[in-house]
Amino acid sequence: MKSKNVLLIFNKKIMYKPLIYRLAKDFDVVFNVLEAKILPKLEGRLILELRGEEDSVDSSIDYLMQEGVVVETLVDRIVRDDERCIHCGACTSVCRVDALCIDRSTMKVMFDHEKCVACGMCKIACPVGAMSGASIDLD
């Protein structure tokens, strides 16, 4: 079994096309919607956790890409500029999945991108612009 978080960007031509249900039906991939945002007449963005055999997950992603969906794998997508981060902790209050949290012994802010679901909230909360990358919100 493998689990992968992906950001899917649907342009306006395909944003109302029923594609997602086929992941389960044809590829035997379990999906979990982590975030979704629709910008009417522009595009739709969806963050999914895909779970299944490695081959199935990969071929389901190939399928989505053939249909014109832009697929971004999220591990390593949201990044922190470690030179810029001053470990204030402001981002920790908005990160719901604890990808950003404080090590209480040092009070430093740890970033675990494996846990990140690219909601983009830390980009809004960080006062010094240390967080960047593809997220559910348009940049």
Binding site: I86, H87, C88, G89, A90, T92, S93, P127
Partner: peptide, 10 residues
């Protein structure tokens, strides 16, 4: 839940 805004490490 609490979060600081000033940097204790700094």
């Amino acid at each position: 839940e609490t979060a600081p805004l000033s940097s204790y490490p700094m």
